[in-house]
Design a protein around this nucleic acid. Sequence first.
DNA 1: ATCCCTTATACTCACAGCAAGTATATGCTG
DNA 2: CAGCATATACTTGCTGTGAGTATAAGGGAT
Lengths: 322, 322
Amino acid sequence: MDDQAIRLRKDRAAFKADDVKVDLIALVVAVNDSEPCVLTIGQADTLPSGPFALEHRSLQSGLRGWVEQQTGHRLGYIEQLYTFADRDRIGAERQQRVISISYLALTRKEQAAGSPKCGWQSWYEYFPWEDHRSGTPPVVLDVLRPRLIEWANGVRDAATRRERWQRATIAFGFDDRLWNEELTLQRYELVYEAGLVQEAVRGRDAAPPPLVPSKSMVADHRRIVATGIARLRSKIKYRPVVFELMPPVFTLLQLQRTVEALAGRLIHKPNFRRLIEQQELVEETGEATTETGGRPAKLFRFRHAVLDDRLIAGTKLPLARG
Amino acid sequence: MDDQAIRLRKDRAAFKADDVKVDLIALVVAVNDSEPCVLTIGQADTLPSGPFALEHRSLQSGLRGWVEQQTGHRLGYIEQLYTFADRDRIGAERQQRVISISYLALTRKEQAAGSPKCGWQSWYEYFPWEDHRSGTPPVVLDVLRPRLIEWANGVRDAATRRERWQRATIAFGFDDRLWNEELTLQRYELVYEAGLVQEAVRGRDAAPPPLVPSKSMVADHRRIVATGIARLRSKIKYRPVVFELMPPVFTLLQLQRTVEALAGRLIHKPNFRRLIEQQELVEETGEATTETGGRPAKLFRFRHAVLDDRLIAGTKLPLARG
DNA sequence: ATCCCTTATACTCACAGCAAGTATATGCTG
DNA sequence: CAGCATATACTTGCTGTGAGTATAAGGGAT
């Protein structure tokens, strides 16, 4: 039957007018002094972004252009995060759709001179419940747990109640379940659904509700950050991406602190060192530094050769479960 | 400095005219009789697709609409694959960009009555080198290896030669390296770069080159299929997505054959059963079937409860390395 | 009925990965 | 010199898992 083919072509033609605007959004991450940071503009509430335009050679180069212009940073490693088109994102004047393509970029903080109107923020400012390096942060049990219980009990249906509480239990590791650092996005979605972040109650003119203390962001940028954190926490376990965040030369402890900063949890030192060395991810420079205090630490550099063959095996990092 | 902010706003305004067209492309996968299939239209060379339009509630619902209209299939599980904007994809008449957002959907083949002009194709028709269930297929060592050696040696620079051959070695497991089924995309990119598939030499009017025998597709659809295969092969190892492809009731061997079909390699049976059962992914229905021949096989169904808590641990499947 | 085939199911073994604990060496600082 | 922080080595024990083998149950051909 060729009707189908013809109808197809006609339908496709009929849609010609529905052009959309495409926005590129960058989540740029660096780690400095054991603190994972994201690059922001505005009131530390906006990610670098800009429209995809004709003169851009590709999506990635368009993104690089915007970030460079807005923050003065040259991006290195880039990977696509997610593409979305929310209903809320329709332009007011014309009925027009906006598609947002978000990217995750990894750099080093010192790389560029700070541009005006941009700065680095610890990502734990936006997600205070994600940093478990000094044990479970108080906000989890003191604030989130009771609020999420309230939220779960806020519905009639018993099944929904149970389902809500189960989701919270899994995501936050309540009731002796273990904390899974990779569930950052699920956790953000929970606190959003429960109306505990500013973004969720924006535009509503109800009485100011009791929010969980945390820094909010413009539009859905905080959601993008959550997506990026989750992606990064998962990826460091099987790809040597940490090195994109390291200076050319570093000590093993610095490397460990960086991974810990990203993962939001501590790592058993001997295991970490064994794993790094047996995988031959790094090589000694022959130098050592005394700046760390204590016994001078050997300096290492990343073995770029592994970028090739680590495609096979994957890099594993020992993230302690307990 | 507020220049920056002002300049930013102006730049953004100046780009207003650069609207783009957004295409949604669906890779719909099912497994039937131990054969992984993709849903195609046209001459079995096109994936269901259509433009994103104003009346679509969301990207996903737009995609569902197009697939349903073109193939009669209602999609269930959907996940985003990748978004790209190739330089080649510029409209001829107007200078306009086309963004393609691709999705991976998992269904069961029997679900819908076949629509005209659409059909299921084994994905190994497009990637004959990916099926290692009966050992390494001949095409790998007899055709691909010599052609890739030629390709690697086709450059002057010794470093490039070595790098090309190393990539090929890793991707295809030459020289006693082990085959990694997840590198489907890297392999396709290699054969593409080497000019061994029809898509790579399209539009060139050089003499017909010696291609590797395989079915080609329109535009870059075959690349999308490769991306989807890679994603799926990776994902079945840590998320229980296989069950989206299974009938409501099945035997353990059927389940194993499905996983093997996707992974393109065989699994050690006792290990597979142990892992499935100890993870409590399935439960017995109490029935058994004699249709399989031999001793009647117990029938199982998927435990939907695990969809929740498998967020934590992840589902693991025993894919033999050797 | 018997043999043989196929499939299902159970048990065992061995090794690698890895989390965790403990101990020691080294060099700085006060 | 004491005290401290770091680096580095050794050991232990659990678990996951790849792999082999054995047994049970039904169907079909002889």
